[in-house]
Design a protein around this nucleic acid. Sequence first.
RNA 1: GGGCACGUAGCUCAGCCCGGACCAGAGCGUCGGACUUCUAAUCCGACGGUCGUGGGUUCAAAUCCCACCGUGCCCGCCA
Length: 581
Amino acid sequence: MLLELRAEAETGLTEALDVLGHPADDLGIERPPDDVDAVLASSVAFRLAEAASRPPPAVAANLADAFDTDGCEYIERVRARGPYLNVIPSERYAEATLAGAVQDGYGHLDRRETSVVVEHTSANPTGPVHVGRARNPIIGDAIASVLEYAGYDVERHYYVNNAGRQVATLAWAYEQFDETALPDPERDKPDYDLVRYYRKGTTFLEEGPEAAVTEAEAEIQSIMRGLEQGDETAYDRVSVAVEATLSGMRETLDRLPAPFDEFVRETRFMRDGSTDDVVARLKTTDHAVYEEDAWQLDLPGIEKNLVFLRSDGTSLYTTRDLAHHEWKLDRFDRAVTVLGEDHELQARQLRATLDLLGHDTDRLDTIHFSWVNLPEGGMSTREGTGVDLDDLLDEAVRRARAEVEQRLDGRMRDDDLSEADIDRIARQVGIGAVRYDIVARQPRKVITFEWERALDFEAQSAPYVQYIHARASGILAEAGATPAPGAVDTTTLTTDAERTLLREIARFPAVIEEAADGLEPHLIATYTREFAEAFNGFYRECPVLDAPEETRRARLALVAAARTTIANALDVLGIAAPDSM
RNA sequence: GGGCACGUAGCUCAGCCCGGACCAGAGCGUCGGACUUCUAAUCCGACGGUCGUGGGUUCAAAUCCCACCGUGCCCGCCA
């Protein structure tokens, strides 16, 4: 509802500025501090003061007088307070907020008729997903969801690298080594099974006898060339190992869950000729250079040449990724990619090259996140250092379960949780805590992984937010029927706590819009925390079930609206909203 | 060496893009309080900060610009 009110405020303010002969290019609309009873404010008066040769408060007072609220549905009035203009909402604003927020889809913005593909994770299928990578699916999935809420047609893609050196090495190692020479797998899952061959293989290439290594390198090269030439045998050899590994990785990602609409395989762009086509076009550009037997691009503003064809005539990952991106731009209006910070240069080169090929790169967005490190250093699949995501999720659920059981005794609510409930809550809370911990921070910040911090179940965590959903659910279940929003008198909601909660509910769609515009899902996490504080304030101050009839009805509607709001906000973050905890 | 990021309470972060009522907000930790009352994974209070450093722009700077310092990532015919 804040979005509608803001639209009214913008129109009204523009008119008022016009009437007084001020420029209306910067309205200075902002969120007022919590202790001001306005829902929106403007600081334009500061900027107008000099030209008007009057102090800001005087300008603000004039603007407040000139603001015509006659046509406004949601604005009661606009008043000056010092140099600021404060927008005071009407009772209709409260009514419309409640009516809007009890709808299941609350927070979904109007459809935009714009398609966007969100590519995320795309980890090399060489072994289990480790925590160092975990930011990618969690941030990526949240970005996809927030765009869906904002009205875009979204597809989630995982780009499978099944053509590079890494997977050729895996395929070779899988054929080369006997299982008896390998350690037992850490889990009974194909990715844990296969990664043993991969690690054995990379160690062999680094430390094995020279002649044997040369032979192995030749074999790996031949697999790569086979793929390049569309050789079915080479493709099958790689597929056996890659697809098995990928299935194990998908199983782990499903636990988050991080669903995908499509797994796009790199080889697709080799087999359909589009990579050759890109190479042919690149050779004809002014920036193409042939140096040291390899075709390269000397890109403007980029210090490093981009090799797009090796001296042996084979393509590189980036070459295929160019074809992949042309494919995406051809099918979608926008393409968002979530990548690690180590891919920064590559992403810049990709963008510059697509630009060179005549594409509108404004349709492209890249979000970079920094690594999750261990206190002792980085994580690596190849070296086998790091914490597997499976282990983190298991431990999270285990600790959450211990927490539920410990709280069982002191439980005030006599609703006897069943074994199945305990299981459900442990899963919702445990995995939710991991996701929240990651999605709540700006992707650029480096994270050092520590068990206690990642699995903190207190304030500023998923359970803190989930708890208010459970509380709201409890009240509504106890009450039985929830009154229709049209049948309640919002004027009975008079306390600060009620008004603050209402204000937070009304803000949700505006938060979605802001998070979607900037591709910043952490804004939603911040919002859920502030929302939870507002709800807890209400919960403390305002009894619902024991309130006088009129008040009770209004508060029940408010609780119902709060519940949908927080459920949907959590939904954006991919975090479950438990009915009981 | 070059490029790109990050630097806010003891610790972990939000605020920075779009400068204004923030002479800075949370959480954790520490200390003290609140369960016969809709779930205490909650709430209330106290203590705690030269917003890395120095300059600049502005009526106004945590926020914009410059320099410097520290940290991370990248600088492969790997991905």
